[in-house]
Nucleic acid binder design. Structure first.
Lengths: 147, 147
DNA sequence: GGAAAAAAGGATCGGTAAATCCGGTGAAGA
DNA sequence: TCTTCACCGGATTTACCGATCCTTTTTTCC
């Protein structure tokens, strides 16, 4: 709804790398763990490497590593790199070409909502993502309290 | 961002028909007024006709007409017919396949925002759309107050 | 009945996102 | 040095959405 598939994979891969900070991770490893198509993911990791978010190493013991601090990378940042953020800044409800002739009727009403989404993406960093994942995993793995 | 192009056209066409309630409108007329591709629009109007939102008539004096009351048709309703609303009801941030293994981390945090969007679409009907369009047109046509 | 008008609907096209394939490059280790 | 491993990157395939074309069907009006 907000991202492309590519961007979604990027976020999930980066979250994985943030959770395994300090260790080199193989594309294959990430693809398996996160159930993403390997070749597609490889492309994405290449992009993120070119963008200096990741370092990469070839050969045995190779793999990818997060270069920046997880709290320094927001979802907004990632979306900007992969998809662009124009859709967040421009016309709201998705009714394109809003001008005086064919105005986008609910533009003004929707604006605050759109701003909220934007702020949300800016404030959600990879740290939040890893924390949320950890919490989820804990809940998922823990046996039922009363059982 | 929230709708497909097809859905956007549907909303705009339905808004046009709501503003011209009681009169039969040609696909061509709507396409011209709203600057939408005629053939594509025709398909959409056919769909809406099959879904019983519109009545259609062939031949001279033919055209399309809104069957239901504008206040009875919400944007949510339209989106449901054209795009489906799974993306609003299911996983939030757009991180698909969220389960215990690969949870969609910010699902819970994003939920209220998503609920707001959903409510917004449910509460915005064609009546609101026509009112908003009328307001916009009035502003656009009125000469500057102090001029 | 014939001509024109307009919707119905099948077939097709084009572009972009998603996904895949494969040869190339460089690093590690025996 | 040779082999293996893993990333690099160009080329290609697939799928889907947006858009268009064209034929058929139905209706109106002369």
């Amino acid at each position: 709804m907000i991202y492309s598939k590519e961007c979604e994979y990027a976020i999930r891969a980066l979250t994985y790398l943030a959770r395994h900070r300090g260790k080199r991770c193989l594309a294959k490893e990430i693809a398996n763990a996160e159930e993403m198509p390997l070749y597609f993911l490889s492309k994405i990791l290449q992009t993120l490497t070119r963008q200096k978010l990741l370092s990469s190493a070839k050969g045995p013991n190779g793999g990818f590593q997060l270069l920046k601090a997880p709290e320094a990378i927001s979802l907004y940042h990632i979306k900007k790199l992969i998809d662009g953020v124009e859709d967040l800044d421009e016309c709201a409800v998705g009714l394109a070409r809003c001008n005086s002739q064919t105005p986008c009727p609910l533009h003004d009403e929707f604006k605050p909502l759109r701003e909220k989404i934007k702020r949300y993406l800016q404030e959600s960093t990879l740290s939040e993502m890893t924390r949320a994942v950890d919490r989820k995993k804990r809940i998922a793995l823990k046996p039922k309290p009363q059982a």
